[in-house]
């Protein structure tokens, strides 16, 4: 749920990075946090277990400047990808305005990518939402692994698995190196703000 403060002329939106365990969601936020200057970013909050796996969520608040005279405040969240944390993922999705689905290029994650997208659809339904109405982009992460000997999926395989029904924009990424990270963020922010602004006739 977006929050529109007409008194301060602010729009607050929530964008959630979703995807299977270890696909690189937290890495996306960390890269954004380190690359942005202090004025544009807030404090990064992470709730993780000992071994760097997200336990509850990460949160990175961003200030993206003005659009049509409104200050745009975005809260980036990640979910915990591990299968057992389904209930927690559902909680984090509460009030979502935009989604980045992060998929993993590693071949061993083939099934996990598909399962995670199904899990996302189910969890959205429990909030009476569908993937078709919420602005969503796809990120195919760890593309730096493709030229290595470690088995990876092809882009075509990922598209067939994940984008046949969704039919949205895809970003290739290597989040550890920052490749594709800001491209993904820019597109999802643009779509989310546009979606919220047109819904409330602010444009």
């Amino acid at each position: 749920m977006a929050l529109i403060n007409l008194s301060k002329r602010e729009i607050h939106c929530k964008i959630v990075y979703y995807g299977s365990g270890r696909c690189g969601k937290t890495t996306n936020l960390l890269y954004i946090y380190n690359a942005m200057n202090n004025k544009a970013r807030g404090k990064m909050l992470t709730i993780e277990t000992k071994g760097e796996r997200t336990l509850f969520f990460d949160l990175l608040p961003l200030n993206l400047g003005k659009i049509n005279g409104f200050d745009i405040r975005i809260q980036l969240y990640t979910v915990p990808g591990q299968t057992i944390y389904k209930a927690t993922r559902k909680l984090v999705l509460k009030g979502v305005d935009g989604l980045v689905f992060v998929a993993d290029y590693l071949k061993v994650r083939h099934e996990k990518n598909i399962e995670s997208l199904q899990d996302l659809r189910r969890n959205l339904l429990e909030h009476n939402l569908t993937l078709e109405e919420i602005p969503t982009v796809l990120q195919f992460n760890k593309c730096d692994m493709v030229p290595t000997p470690i088995p990876t999926l092809t882009r075509e395989e990922l598209e067939i698995d994940l984008n046949r029904e969704l039919n949205t924009k895809i970003f290739e990424a290597a989040a550890t190196k920052g490749i594709g990270v800001f491209e993904t963020l820019k597109e999802i922010s643009k779509r989310t703000v546009h979606y919220v602004a047109t819904k409330h006739l602010l444009t």
Partner: peptide, 8 residues
């Protein structure tokens, strides 16, 4: 959950 529009 509907968006919240807050007036002054």
């Amino acid at each position: 959950m509907a968006d919240l529009v807050l007036t002054t």
